[in-house]
Design a protein around this nucleic acid. Structure first.
Length: 118
DNA sequence: AACATGACGTATT
DNA sequence: TAATACGCCATGT
C-alpha cells in the first residue's frame, strides 16, 4: 500500500494531549506542564503548545483553559489571542487580572466549590 | 548536521 | 514582582 502517513501526519501524542485539555472543567485552568503530565508526557510542556497550534478548526477545544505555570496567559499582552483568551475565561467566571494573570490556586478552589455542596 | 524558534518550566538574583 | 539564565523537546531552515 502506498504509505503516505509520514507526510503531514499528526504526531501520536497530540490526540492524548487534546483529550486531557478537553477534560478540563469549565471555570478551571491547567498549566501547560500539568497537561503534559496528565497526558503521560512529563517535561513536555512545549509539546502541548505545539499540539494547541495544530488543533483542527473543526475541533472545539477549551484551549483558553491552558495557562503558563505562573498563571499567566501565554500570548503577548497586545495580541488578539490574549484578549480572546481573557474574554473566554471571564465568561466562565474565571478572574483574570489586567495583565492576564489567573490565580491557579483560586481556580482549583472553584472546582472544590463544585464538589463541596452535595 | 548545526542553528534558530517557540501558546514552556524552574532556579536564581 | 520582574529580569535573567539555563534546561527541555519537537520542527523548520
Amino acid at each position: 500500500m502506498g504509505d503516505d502517513s509520514s507526510r503531514s501526519a499528526v504526531p501520536a501524542t497530540f490526540p492524548r494531549i487534546w483529550a486531557v485539555i478537553a477534560a478540563i472543567p469549565a471555570g478551571t485552568v491547567l498549566s501547560y506542564g500539568e497537561v503534559a503530565r496528565r497526558a503521560g508526557l512529563p517535561r513536555r510542556a512545549r509539546l502541548v503548545a505545539q499540539a494547541l497550534r495544530a488543533v483542527p478548526d473543526a475541533m472545539p477545544l477549551p484551549w483558553h483553559r491552558v495557562l503558563r505555570s505562573d498563571g499567566r496567559i501565554a500570548f503577548p499582552a497586545d495580541s488578539l489571542g490574549f484578549r480572546e483568551q481573557c474574554n473566554r475565561l471571564r465568561s466562565e467566571g474565571v478572574e483574570v487580572s489586567a495583565t492576564g494573570r489567573v490565580r491557579l490556586a483560586a481556580a482549583a478552589m472553584s472546582l472544590d466549590e463544585l464538589l463541596w455542596r452535595p
